[in-house]
């Protein structure tokens, strides 16, 4: 039941963040959304993800948003007030297709799901012995899937490079 309430609040926060006209309010609501999300992660047993979400989602990402809002107009302008039918139809079509897709998904929390019976038992069985850490997530992240993490660092480096190049002042640009 508690999970359902949390998910309901997630939806409320998402809608509020999207409809708010004042962008700063939107950003703060998005930060609340991230915090609730961190609690949802704990409820789902993903403690490492919860820590990352609280630090990165609610922390760094909010700081970035506010940093950008100091440089641009803070109000969303109402250029055209009309109901946007086409986006609504597209979104509903995609949503219904996805819901149709979930009918074939494994049941929520089912231990017999394919995702829980392949590869992972091997990690759980030998993980502690082979990686030398009690935290399976850390072990897989740094050891079994070390190349993923290397790729992730490359992405962060590239993104950092992009941001620096884009934000150089106009005069210096070629």
């Amino acid at each position: 039941m508690a999970d359902l309430v949390l998910l309901f609040f997630l939806i409320v926060c998402a809608v509020a963040a999207v409809v708010q006209k004042e962008l700063l309010n939107s950003v703060i609501i998005l930060s609340i959304y991230s915090l609730i999300m961190a609690v949802v992660w704990v409820r789902l047993g993903a403690v490492d993800v919860a820590i990352t979400e609280a630090a990165v989602g609610a922390g760094i990402s909010t700081v970035l948003f506010i940093a950008v809002l100091t440089r641009v107009k803070r109000r969303e302008e109402l250029t055209r007030i009309r109901l946007q039918i086409l986006p609504l139809i597209v979104v509903l079509a995609v949503g219904l297709t996805l819901i149709y897709g979930t009918l074939d998904m494994p049941d929520f929390g089912s231990p017999a799901a394919v995702t829980n019976t392949h590869v992972v038992p091997r990690y759980l069985e030998k993980g502690v012995e082979e990686t030398g850490t009690d935290n399976y997530v850390a072990g897989i992240l740094a050891s079994y899937r070390g190349y993923d993490t290397l790729g992730e660092t490359t992405v962060i480096f590239t993104a950092g490079l992009c941001v620096v190049l884009l934000l150089r002042s106009n005069k210096k640009r070629l």
């Binding site: 993903a46 990165v56 940093a67 590869v119 897989i140 992240l141 899937r145 992730e152 992405v155 962060i156």
Partner: peptide, 24 residues
Amino acid sequence: NPLPHVLILTAIVVGVSVTAVAFA
């Protein structure tokens, strides 16, 4: 299952990188 947690840890950080580039 710890495997999705690992994948999503990576995805969260990559997501923030994407947001940062979008901001720039």
